[in-house]
Nucleic acid binder design. Sequence first.
DNA 1: TTGAAAGCGTTACCAA
DNA 2: TTGGTAACGCTTTCAA
Lengths: 333, 333
Amino acid sequence: MASSGSGPRRVTIDDVARSAGVSRQTVSRALNDKDEIGVSTKQRVLDAALALGYRPSRFARGLVRQDTISVGLVIPDLLNPFFTEVAAAALDAARAREWHVVVYDTGDRVEEERGTLEVIASQVDAVVGYLSLPEDEIDKLTRGLPVVLIDREHRTERFSSIRIEGEEGVHAAIRHLVEAGHRRIGMLDHAERSKPSIRHHWFDAAMSACGLDAGAVSRADQSVEGGEAALRELLAAHPDVTAVFTFNDIIAIGALRAARRLGREVPRDLAVIGFDGLRLGSLVEPPLTTVALDTRGLGALAVEQAARLLTRSEPLSSDELAVGAELRLRESA
Amino acid sequence: MASSGSGPRRVTIDDVARSAGVSRQTVSRALNDKDEIGVSTKQRVLDAALALGYRPSRFARGLVRQDTISVGLVIPDLLNPFFTEVAAAALDAARAREWHVVVYDTGDRVEEERGTLEVIASQVDAVVGYLSLPEDEIDKLTRGLPVVLIDREHRTERFSSIRIEGEEGVHAAIRHLVEAGHRRIGMLDHAERSKPSIRHHWFDAAMSACGLDAGAVSRADQSVEGGEAALRELLAAHPDVTAVFTFNDIIAIGALRAARRLGREVPRDLAVIGFDGLRLGSLVEPPLTTVALDTRGLGALAVEQAARLLTRSEPLSSDELAVGAELRLRESA
DNA sequence: TTGAAAGCGTTACCAA
DNA sequence: TTGGTAACGCTTTCAA
């Protein structure tokens, strides 16, 4: 049983102290730029540290300083511009509090989400984001951590969630279409979950509020290509449709592209209204009319609620945990 | 001088132990799902923990377990799609190693970058990303941490950097324009740094390699609006320009928009070639021809090099620390 | 199945 | 200006 041990042992402050011929505290002082230390001593310590390749343990440091907070931000796909915006907002809100944000991209895979949650508990003080696992499983994996869900209901006491209140905005969108003379309005819903989305319900409600029959619906993957395919499908089945409302802006952008390729000019031959209010929407041609969400609010609220949960101060009420949406008129409708 | 102390003291494992009438280790066992514990004891401990709102200290845990690595990813602006792509790639590469990534968005402000670097040293094991501070300052702030710079030269021994090799790609782009008959080719460079960018040099070199005089140049802010303004300026000063190469895709997209508003049809009246190869480029109209960078490689290489620096294994050589770029023909040129 | 003791690597607080 | 000692909160031996 020789002395080889398991891998190169970590270089600790004691190694540096020994090598520089001083005590630990002196090393600590040198490294943390404290005053109470001689210049030459300091230099000697710094040299020794460098020579040994010493790096302080952030855990030991954090343990004694107890002054940093990190939140884990879990998102399905950072490349999806919607999540990018939410993430950016969350980073902003966290920075304002001097919090650190550990970002996890699950790539929309449940196993990854599970893996992330498994490992997250020992790395952060709170979890915020888009989770798709069942609540009891989340509960088990995050035992003890505050959890703030975005755009998802929750029943478990421990969790909080940020609601999206889009009904108003969707109404406004449909009303706008109707006022422009549209009667046959379709929807491109998302395809991933089994049941129709809440946004679909809002659409239905808005349609009947405007005295229209339920509109035709196609289901689209959450991608530009998905939107493209879905619009083609919808128009094939219902050629008389003159306007579409989509589950989100990404799908709407796909629809825009499909329309162009089908020779339908937007908005003249087909009006398109998206949902989300992505910046991206203003770059495409024609710029996308959309039901714009307060994405910044989404990220900020989530972080704010995490903060309250963490400090045991009065958490935000259910009423406050919501962001609104309003119709943003551009050129596609 | 009462006993109020400073804020509510942290609930520790000892509090739980006391409350449940067991020892610390038993609490530890219950919380970590170990076997050596009675069912009823375990439940009692769990209940106590819940009641007290106990959350294990990740620092104490990390100190003992020493098994997690985090890198800090510093980027100027997550909402800039280019950085989003790099970030996503870095997250991917990190996940493959089971590393955690703490993301910092400096909002392109040096003070924020400084603030971030100040605080980062005690939070992560390595730093990766886009930094704009002078090397000596970075050196001071990150003392001891491995640092991998992206798209920036370095002189300091301690640092590594990932180089972008775009010369080939830019040559191909200009050659392509020349073959299409263009002779008056302009460039939209970025405006932020004082001296012309390397991409500008590549452009000049490519121009002269094709036997052309130096092209007209305008400087653009790193935004769609910036690109728009810059193209207007360029065309105002040099109306005979028939093609532009831009510092990046964002600026190119602005140019596309400006061209449309000026009534110049792309590519018929004006050819546009960007740089970066953003996904976004394929969504605009017309889809953007661009010198596409291997963004995934950028993020992945940075993380890979950080890993080598961290484990003291053979770091990647300068030759390996580069990503290439190739002309991606779409419709704008 | 449970508990006592010994670390993990650092900084804070005194005393020298 | 320096060093000794005591935390910080947890997990891992090893004994009971």
